Simulated scan of single mutants.
Amino acid sequence: MGKPINQGDLSGPDSGANTDWVQHFSRDVPDAVLLSRHYYREAAERGSLADILQHDHEFDQDIALLSRAGRRHAHGFWLTETNSYYRGGLDGVSNAFASALWGLDFSLSAAYHGATGLCFQGGPRRSIESSLEGHRTGGRDADGADMIARIDAVTANYSPIGGDLSTGFAARPLYYGLLAARLLAGNRFHVLKTADVAPGVRVYAAAGADGVRIVVINSSQTESRVLGFSGLAPRAAVRVAPLQAPSLNSRDALTFGTDSRTLEPDAAWELQYQEVAPVSNHGTLDIQVSAGSAALILLPQIVV
């Protein structure tokens, strides 16, 4: 039978979508090292471009609730399996640029509400379809196509990293949303005093040793937004790294910062900020964020 399992090494309950089970597990197994559950927005066949761009405020409440319970456990609360849509993700949405904006917003919101870690589902298309007992997940015919399209064709729709041994491996759009969120890791969130934020705009700010990073996400499909910030250090230098693509449906081209070498296999991408006008003498700053894009803003400090 082997050695007994050390209860101190247990984690769980890895619930598919039931928050109550996680709370019961926390009370019943106080020595568990972490709490866990899964999250997907919906089944792939019920997803859409418009849907993935909508923030899930209800799940924010679940994360906050479970994160409070997670404080009693050594490694807190984790989403041990998550992504946009279950059943392999939605072709044309989960593998398009819209997924980068969703992943950026979802990851930062989860962290803000107290989640300790997120594990995103992914892998080759054939592996996911096999696990779904042969359910077809779509995908385009990439015969004769360029390498980015071939990688997309063999990759599960929701995978942040694409490819297989025949194509090589490369980042997919979702990867860069997660990477942008990762740049705020280890920093302390600021609570911003906001007034009349436009619909579809999400703003996060976090302070670290090298300054303050502000992320603005504009999920509007048609409207560019100008956001005004105040209470900043006058004349402070400002650097911006846009996260953008030709369209929200784009799956073959993406730019983060000033570098568009993002989706090719073995891409030598590096984060390069744009220098923009400094904070005004009055401590104000206006930043324009195009429709269907995001911006990472780096400031040396946030208040006078």
Rank of each mutant, 00 (worst) to 15 (best):
D14V: 07
G138S: 09
P160S: 07
L227N: 01
D9L: 15
T82G: 07
L232Q: 00
D62L: 00
H75D: 02
A43M: 11
F256I: 00
E270S: 15
L296R: 09
V216P: 01
V216R: 05
V22M: 02
L243A: 04
K193V: 10
G211F: 00
Q7T: 11
A100N: 00
P234A: 09
Y85T: 05
S290I: 12
V33R: 15
L296D: 01
T194D: 06
A268Q: 14
R27Q: 14
V289I: 08
F97G: 03
H38V: 06
A153R: 07
D143E: 10
Q7P: 09
V154C: 10
D31G: 14
A198Q: 14
N18M: 11
G134W: 00
S109I: 08
S36T: 15
Y175G: 04
L90V: 00
F25W: 10
T167Q: 10
Q274V: 08
P160N: 07
S94M: 04
Q121L: 12
I148F: 12
P160V: 07
G228I: 04
P4T: 06
G76M: 02
V197E: 12
R182N: 13
Q288D: 07
A291H: 08
V279I: 06
T116K: 14
E270G: 12
L66P: 01
T255V: 09
G134D: 03
F59E: 13
D210R: 12
S109N: 14
I217W: 12
W269E: 14
P173R: 07
I63N: 06
E264I: 03
A69E: 10
E129H: 11
L192N: 08
A185I: 05
T137E: 05
D91N: 06
V29C: 13
D146K: 02
G114V: 10
L263G: 08
P265M: 02
P242G: 05
G292L: 00
